[in-house]
């Protein structure tokens, strides 16, 4: 059980790292949010799951388990609010963009 929890911990940290690399490398705010939400959410969920396996059904373990759905909803709704807000604010999409259907309705 201990080795599974260490494995999950390592996976979580690696994916958090990938998310941060994506935050630096990708071209604009919209693409950066993609890496920030996906990698960082699953990375952190993995760390919390490792915590649950380590502590079992105690106060700390259950709290870690309940934090997973909270984190999930907070990060998806937060990403949604950020991406919509930055579009309304007028931040341009990158030059590589091929299609923009949102332009006509965002006026």
């Amino acid at each position: 059980m201990n080795s599974i929890s260490i494995f999950l911990l390592i996976v979580g940290i690696v994916f958090d790292l990938f998310g941060c690399i994506g935050l630096l490398r990708l071209p604009d705010v919209y693409n950066r949010l993609q890496s920030a939400t996906k990698c960082v959410t699953l990375g952190t969920c993995s760390i919390l799951l490792a915590l649950f396996l380590h502590y079992g059904f105690t106060s700390v373990g259950i709290k870690a388990l309940i934090a997973i759905p909270f984190l999930f909803f907070a990060s998806t709704v937060g990403a949604h609010a950020l991406i919509r807000g930055s579009y309304k604010f007028g931040i341009k999409l990158t030059d590589k963009t091929v299609i923009d259907d949102y332009k006509e309705v965002s006026k």
Partner: peptide, 19 residues
């Protein structure tokens, strides 16, 4: 996660974004 990790880490960065 694997999809994003691949796009972030590959040197050419295969992205073609759009809404």
């Amino acid at each position: 996660n694997f999809d994003v990790a691949y796009r972030v880490l590959s040197p050419k960065m295969p992205i073609k974004p759009g809404i």
